[in-house]
Each structure stands twice: as C-alpha cells, then as structure tokens.
Design a protein around this nucleic acid. Structure first.
Length: 794
DNA sequence: CAGATCCCTG
DNA sequence: CAGGGATCTG
C-alpha cells in the first residue's frame, strides 16, 4: 500500500527525508565521549493498542465522551477551523504573509488539480459523516452503559420487583436487542461508507483478504497474526472478521458479519451450549475476560469475542437475575467492543489512507538501513526514511517560494545587510564558496545521495535555491572572514559600530547583490530531520482522534505536508493506529494517574508525555478542539521546545501556542516558555562566541595556515565539536536529526561572531545585537509535526 | 508604560 | 534553567 501510486494526493510534491535517528560515530567523530553510538536503534514497534481502547475504560470515558458528545460535530469542526484561522491571523505579520501565500498556492492547486481537490472534499464530507456516526455510536454505547448500570441496580433491588422481574428482564432484553440491532445498522452504514470511500482498495484486496481469513480461520491462537494481518486487511472486510478467526471451535458462521444477530445465536444454541459451557468459560475467561487484558494488547478483538461468548455461555445456565446481568453484560461488551472495533478500524483506515499511504503523500516511503556512507558501510541503528522524490521538484520549489513569504522578507533584508557589511573592502568574494561555504552544506548530502539516488540532488544544491539566506550565496555566509587580512589591519570600514554597518547594508537596495536575483528568495523548506516513529504515531493518533473530519492539515496548510517530517514515519512495522502508551496516558487522565508512574520505569524510552512527569505539570483540560491541555510545562515540553529551537530561535508566543496545543497557556506558562527559548539562545550564542573567539585565537597563532584554521574553525559540520555541543544541548538523546538548516544558521552565527571579533567590533557594548538581528531572521518554519501534542522524542 | 530581551547570577 | 534587574521598543 505504501507504493500504490494512484491516489488522492498524488499531486503532492515528494520530499526527501533522511531518517537517521542516530548519528553514527563516523558522522560524529567528536562524539566519542557519548556512548550513544552504541545505542540500539529506536524501536519501531509500538505497543499494539487499539485506538479507542480507552472508550472501554470505565474511568476516563465519561468525561471525554460527554465533552465530545455534547458538541455538534459540525460546530466542533468549525471551531477548530476557526481556531486555526485565528491562530494564523494572530501570528505576526510575517507569518500572516506566509499564510496568504499558502492560500494563493491553494488556489493554484485547485486549478491544477481539480480532481484531487474533489477527492479531498469528498473525503472531508465522509470524514464529517463518520465523525457523526462515531459520535452516535459513542452515545449509544454510553446509553447502554447507563442502562446497564440501571439494570445492575435493578438486580440489587431484585426482591422488590420480583413480580415483574421476568417480564422486566424480557423487556430489557428486547431493548438491548433493539439497541444492538440499531448499532449493527449503524455499523453497517459505517462499513458501507468506508467501503465506498476505499472501494478500489477493497476490490483490490478482497481476494487477498479472503485468502488471509481462510488461512487464519484455522488457527486458534491468532493474536499476533491477527494484529499483523489487520493492518493490511481492508477494514470493510475485516470489520467483523476477527470473530470468525477467533478460536478454532467457533463456527465460522456463529457471528456472520452484519447478518444474524448474536442474540439469535444466543437463543438458538442456548441449550446445547450449556454442556460445553464449563470448558469454554475456562478458555474464555482465561483468554480475555478481563478488560485490562483486552486493552493491554493487540488482542482486543479476539478477546472481546471470547469474552462475550464465554460470558454468554456462562450466563445461560444461571437462572434469574444473574443470567440477566450476564446477558446484559455480554450485550454491553458486544456493543462496546463492536463500537470500539468500528471506530478503531475507521480511524485506522482513515489515518492510513490519509496520512500514511502514498495516496495522500509524496510517493513511496522506504526505510532502509542506512548504508549511506560513501563506502556503503552499514551503520547500525541508523535508518534512512526516504520519501522518494517524484516529479515534484519544480512544484516543490514553487511552493517553497510561496512559502517563503516570511523568510523572503528576512532574506531580502539579509541580502541587503550582508552586502558589504563586514566584508572587508577588496576581500575577494570568490574565496567564499570554496573556502567557507562549501564545507558547510555539503558535508553529508552527497554521500546520502550516492546510496539513495532517489534522494535527488545534493541537499546543498537543492537547498540553495530555497535558502538563499543560508545557501552558498547567503549574504552572511559568503562573507569571508577577514582571516586573510593581517590581524593588525582590520578594514577601517567595519572596525567600529556593527550596527552602523548593518544599517548601511540594510539600506542598500536588495538588488545590489549579484548573487541574489531580484525575485524574492524561496522559502526554506523545513530541513530533513526526522522525529521518531512513535511521535509520528502520536501525531497520527491525535490527528485522527481530534480531527476525524480533517485528518490532515487544513488545505491551506497542505503544502507543509511535503516537508513535514511527520511524513517520514511510515514503517511497515509501525502502524499508525497504535498509539504509544504515553499518548494514551496523556489523553486519559485516569490512565495517567494510575499507571503512569509505574509504567514510567519499565517503558521509558518510549518517550511521550511521561518522561518523569509528563502530566505532572498540572490539571488536564479538554479544549474545544478535543485536545487535552495541561497547566504547566513538563520535561517533555522542554524537550520539544529544544528541538523546535533547531528551527526557530525567536518564536513568538503565538507560535508557541500553535506548537504546544497540549499546553494551557497562561501568562506564567507563556513567559516560562519564552524564557526557555531565551535560555536556549543564550547558550547558543555563548557557544558561538566561544568558538569564534577560539577561531580568532587560532587564526592569530597559526598565521601560517590561515586556510586550515578557517576550515576547521568556521564551520559547524556534523563532525565538529561545536555541533556536538549544540546537539548535546538541544538534542540530548540524539534521536532527532539536527536539521541541516540549523547547522547552516549556526555557521552564519559563528561567522558573524568571528567577523565581529576579528574586526574588533566586540568592543562595542552592544556588538551582539547585530548578530542577533541576523540570526533572528534565519528562523525557519517549524515542521507541522510539532503542531501536535506530545513529545517528539523520548 | 507594558512587553520583550538581555544580562547576570545562583 | 529560573529569577530578577536593566534595557530597549513601540
């Protein structure tokens, strides 16, 4: 399915993403102190959790459900849209500009891909319908639970209503039966919708599924296989199939999909079953009677089936209230599990087809063990996730250009200011590319490309057009450090006030730069770093859960998808519909409260919102968008913020709100997070200054080999000490691949510092201001992956 | 003057 | 990293 070419969003531009969670020692020669190189690769196999298993959880259910039930799906959606709009509107002008650009692009796209859009729209409608149906289902389930509760209560008062007991039970049964039927109808409707939506896929896989089922129907112990298979299975078929598969003893037609009611079955076989009841109860209870068991693993479906049947059988022989209870219980379970299954399935399919299949995304995704090194030697634990580049190169660029909006301005200014800024008069420009810039951008990309031709052009060359500001022609980059100048002869023009030079340059015309053509520079596509897999699943989960009707980004943001690392997480073994425990804990307060601590120990490394206090921050709140927020910031939020620093050094508070949807922002929290970034910057600049000074020192001492010194000191390749330090600070676990863009920005900063120090500008009390100003303009958009709640890495 | 940053300190 | 004063900006 990953490679199925024809699909909804085949128009999206492909994007190359390197999935290299761990950098090898080869790449990081300086990292020897860190034992990380021996770290096993991150687990790509998340716990198999049904998406909505929490719906079956007695604790956290009501709050959540009521919160959603009481909300009209459509208004709900509107609210979310509004939020998004507002969000965008609130962001500063640059971003707003960006948004407009995106809108423009959307228009163009519409013209270009009417078909695709149509599909998308129908998808949206379907999504809405589904969400409504899901809500109804949930409601029914809830009602059922209440009814059940009443029934239980009734049993307690059994003696009082003894006269009407039998009649009451019968009526109760009837009602339950009706409800079940109703539920089935809804399920069927749902199924049909799914069928309609994924008809082609279904057709294609029907055969396969049939075979699969047949093959599986013989195996009683099909848990593992089931889960694995279900991933591939078409939901329309698999919706009820698990029951068939379950237990060899079960007749295949015991629960014919959507046809005979289990109740009929119940009545029919009531007598004969009594005999086998005991053994079955053993099996049933052992197999999956306990809800926890059901929830805990991938065996939900199977377990539910076993549970119901065994319970049922067990209840048959009990006369009186107990039987009624059992029956009600069984019904309840059936309903609950059915609803859960359907929702889970729908969500899974939905997320699959929307977020993970090539249909919605740039073509094929492949994860290969990276033997990306020149010699092709294999690096353990390093994986490359590649989104093969289709034809979208051009389009991508176009998008980037439009996206640039925000950075365009910055770029322009940068161009201006860097032109002749600190560049010493007479300093030949030509030395830059070879001496300084080249080592920067070309560090690794060529190697990667060698191993993976699909990656397309070298990163540097690809990025260049879109990152004028940091490309080979970047104004600040090209500026060669005045190394070649005698230390004692700093160019007079730049000796003093750094701001003056800055202003000077910024006042010059933007077209003054020969390396910068008039058209505004294209936007920087988010680099190619990759969050961990489990994060992607969190994202998927939250997307599908919170935006069932809009599983992806709003159309206007679709462009981001292409460069969203979020897309990089398609691994065969990692199914989107299995959210990691952490997220579930995050979403379910009760879970978090109870199990959070214990699991913390055993499951650490799973990441998520736990990490020593994911939920310690404070109370959870359910936002109108359906996202749980918490007061206070957790260590995971800090981690995320640090990773975000790779993209944005100067986030606005609105940006923060956008990218921390699970945080309830108040004045305190906002300022705390601002403070975080302030601290990040501080650290960053301190390191830059430190290394710049060191470079200056070295340049002074080894006068004879300035070039060497320059090479070694003024670049922030992944093999440098400076990089190691930065990586250690912002990406301690070294799980997230530092975006190339950040490295480039770091180099810009380093050179700025170097230049300033070299020219003696650092004597000015506010000599750093100019540098800050430059760096602040190099912020790039944060990948959409960060927009979702949760923690990117463990 | 408020808010954002910077800068220093613990 | 947080606190808190100083400084800048609009």
């Amino acid at each position: 399915m990953m490679d199925s070419p024809t699909d909804l969003f085949d128009d999206t531009s492909p994007q190359i993403h390197a999935f290299a969670p761990n950098l090898s020692s080869a790449e990081l020669p300086g990292v020897h102190t860190q034992p990380s190189t021996g770290r096993p690769p991150p687990s790509f196999r998340p716990p198999g959790f049904p998406l909505i298993h929490h719906l079956l959880q007695p604790g956290g259910e009501h709050r959540r459900i009521s919160g959603q039930l009481n909300t009209n799906p459509s208004t709900h959606r509107h609210l979310e849209d509004r939020n998004l709009e507002d969000d965008r509107g609130e962001r500063d002008g640059e971003v707003e500009e960006q948004g407009m650009d995106r809108g423009e692009e959307e228009v163009i796209e519409r013209e270009d891909k009417v078909l695709g859009i149509k599909k998308r729209h129908s998808d949206a409608t379907l999504g809405a319908e589904w969400s409504q149906d899901l809500l109804k289902m949930k409601r029914m389930k809830l009602e059922n639970r209440q009814r059940d509760g009443e029934a239980d209560g009734g049993a307690d008062r059994g003696c009082r209503r003894r006269e009407g007991g039998r009649e009451g039970r019968r009526r109760e049964r009837e009602e339950l039966k009706e409800q079940l039927e109703e539920a089935r109808e809804r399920l069927q409707a749902l199924q049909e919708k799914v069928w309609r939506a994924f008809g082609e896929k279904h057709m294609a896989e029907e055969e396969k599924n049939r075979r699969c089922r047949n093959a599986n129907s013989g195996t009683a112990d099909g848990r593992e296989g089931d889960v694995g298979m279900m991933e591939e299975e078409d939901i329309t078929e698999g919706m009820y199939d698990e029951e068939d598969i379950d237990g060899g003893k079960m007749e295949k037609d015991s629960f014919p999909p959507l046809s005979a009611s289990p109740l009929d079955h119940f009545h029919k076989q009531r007598g004969e079953r009594q005999r086998e009841r005991e053994g079955r109860m053993e099996r049933g209870r052992g197999g999956g009677l306990h809800l926890e068991g059901v929830m805990e693993g991938a065996g939900l479906w199977l377990d539910c089936g076993g549970l119901i049947r065994s319970d049922w059988d067990g209840g048959l022989e009990d006369d009186g209230e107990e039987e009624g209870q059992k029956f009600a219980q069984a019904l309840k379970m059936e309903l609950g599990s059915a609803v859960a299954r359907v929702i889970d399935r729908v969500l899974r399919i939905y997320t699959e087809t929307t977020d993970f299949t090539p249909s919605s995304l740039p073509t094929a995704i492949s994860f290969l063990p990276s033997d990306v090194e020149n010699d092709g030697r294999r690096e353990k634990g390093v994986w490359m996730g590649l989104l093969t580049r289709e034809r979208g190169e051009e389009k991508m660029r176009g998008k980037e250009e439009k996206l640039a909006g925000q950075d365009g301005e910055r770029e322009k200014q940068l161009q201006k200011m860097s032109n002749g800024n600190t560049l010493p008069p007479g300093q030949p420009h030509h030395t830059e590319p070879s001496d300084l810039t080249m080592p920067l951008a070309l560090q690794r990309s060529p190697d990667i490309r060698k191993a993976h031709p699909l990656l397309g052009p070298p990163l540097s060359t690809h990025l260049n057009p879109s990152h004028p500001n940091i490309s080979l022609h970047h104004p600040s980059l090209p500026r060669p450090p005045p190394l070649s100048h005698p230390p004692l002869l700093p160019p007079a023009s730049q000796t003093k006030d750094p701001t003056s030079s800055f202003q000077l340059s910024s006042s010059s015309s933007s077209s003054s730069s020969s390396s910068f053509p008039a058209p505004p520079p294209p936007p920087p596509p988010p680099p190619l770093p990759l969050p961990l897999l489990h994060y992607s699943m969190q994202q998927l989960f939250s997307r599908s859960l919170h935006h069932p009707q809009l599983p992806h980004l709003p159309p206007s943001r679709k462009d981001y998808l292409n460069s969203d690392p979020f897309l990089e997480f398609s691994h065969p073994s990692a199914h989107p519909s299995f959210p990691p425990l952490p997220l579930l804990g995050h979403l379910d307060p009760s879970l978090a409260r109870h199990g959070g601590r214990e699991r913390d120990r055993g499951m650490r490394g799973d990441g998520g919102m736990r990490g020593g206090g994911g939920l310690d921050g404070g109370e959870l709140y359910l936002t109108p968008g359906g996202v749980y927020t918490q007061e206070g910031l957790s260590p995971c939020h800090l981690k995320k913020a640090k990773l975000m620093f790779f993209y944005t050094r100067y986030p606005s508070s609105n940006t923060l709100k956008t990218y921390f949807p699970d945080v309830k922002f108040n004045r305190c929290v906002t300022s705390q997070m601002i403070k975080w970034f302030s601290n990040f910057r501080e650290f960053f600049y301190i390191q830059m200054e430190r290394f710049a000074r060191q470079a200056v020192r070295e340049a002074l001492t080894r006068e004879g080999a300035p070039r060497l010194g320059r090479e070694n000191q003024l670049r922030v390749g992944r093999d440098t000490e400076l990089y190691r330090i930065l990586n250690m600070h912002y990406n301690k676990s070294n799980i997230y691949q530092v975006p190339e863009r950040f490295i480039e920005v770091s180099e810009v900063a380093l050179r700025e510092f170097y230049s300033a120090i070299w020219t003696g500008r650092d004597s000015d009390p506010c000599w750093k201001k100019g540098i800050y100003k430059i760096i602040c303009k190099l912020d790039s958009p944060v990948p959409d992956a960060f927009r979702l709640p949760g923690c990117p890495v463990g």
